[in-house]
């Protein structure tokens, strides 16, 4: 296996007297795909914020693309370089796009900021990206309010890819989509990974989505990693009680819901 493109070591984030992320470590191989699985309050979204520099870690370190990004960037150039290396796609495409900006403009903005180029070069790249995510010309130039949730999420993904990131953080990026659209986006994310070699961090509570899109996974519970390993092994043969509970809670044919005692 090649050198990891992203390594988190002993990552810890404390808010007041609450430890949201507690000594979390993982490595993402170049071109790999790693899931961070957990329920609400597990700390998985805080990890995403730490990776993208939206929160500062209380302790621990993050190495991405060979550089340390544990501390805030000390210059605009450094901040921009970090932005170009790691991009994020959020869960809700209804709140993550500027309502006054067409998809083409918002993709172009990221392109111009991170990769520059002439107007014609950028326009060509925007068209390429639209093709990659399956948007037609009308959709590309429409305002978000005229697009469906799935189309908006395609814009958000194209926008993130415009920076040519080495790592894409997908924070529940397919959770709000209808099943038929979710399948389209999952297939597309698989194709993009094959075509560009980008690495994924998928933050998700949906184990079936995790199985489909990732090679490795860590399971988080109350800020800590309770289990880590290849996704298939974790789902087929969970070693920890909590992982087993998660897996057994997923509805499937023949499944019956179970009552637990309220804490």
């Amino acid at each position: 296996m090649s050198e990891p493109i992203l390594t988190a070591s002993g990552l810890t984030k404390v808010f007041g007297d609450h430890t949201a992320v507690d000594d979390v470590s993982f490595a993402l191989p170049e071109g790999g795909s790693l899931a961070i699985v957990g329920e609400s309050g597990s700390g998985k979204t805080t990890v995403a914020k730490l990776l993208t520099g939206l929160e500062r870690a209380t302790a621990g370190s993050i190495m991405a693309c060979g550089r340390d990004r544990s501390l805030p960037a000390r210059s605009a150039a450094e901040r921009r370089r970090r932005g170009a290396e790691v991009q994020i796609v959020f869960q809700d495409p209804y709140s993550s796009l500027d309502p006054r900006q067409s998809g083409a403009d918002s993709i172009d903005e990221v392109r111009r900021l991170h990769r520059g180029g002439s107007r014609a070069e950028r326009a060509a790249r925007v068209t390429e990206l639209a093709d990659l995510v399956g948007l037609d010309n009308r959709q590309l130039h429409a305002l978000p309010r005229d697009l469906s949730g799935g189309q908006r999420q395609r814009i958000a993904i194209a926008r993130a890819l415009a920076a040519e990131p080495r790592i894409l953080v997908l924070d529940e990026s397919v959770a709000a989509l209808d099943v038929s659209i979710q399948a389209q986006i999952l297939n597309m994310l698989g194709d993009i990974r094959d075509a560009t070699g980008v690495s994924y961090i998928l933050i998700s509570h949906d184990l079936a989505v995790v199985r489909q899109l990732t090679d490795d996974a860590i399971v988080m519970h109350r800020g800590r990693v309770v289990e880590a390993g290849p996704t298939a092994r974790i789902l087929d043969d969970p070693q920890e009680d909590y992982t087993r509970l998660l897996r057994d809670s997923v509805p499937r044919p023949g499944w019956k819901p179970q009552r637990r005692q309220v804490a």
């Binding site: 469906s148 799935g150 189309q151 209808d178 099943v179 038929s180 659209i181 979710q182 399948a183 389209q184 999952l186 297939n187 698989g190 184990l207 079936a208 989505v209 199985r211 489909q212 298939a232 789902l235 087929d236 897996r247 997923v250 499937r252």
Partner: peptide
């Protein structure tokens, strides 16, 4: 049938999901 087929499976990774073209 298409809805059932489009859903990713927790027990197996599909080479491609059977996505339904278009949107609802």
């Amino acid at each position: 049938a298409a809805l059932v087929a489009a859903r990713p499976d927790i027990d197996a990774t599909a080479a491609r999901l059977a996505a339904i073209p278009g949107r609802p």
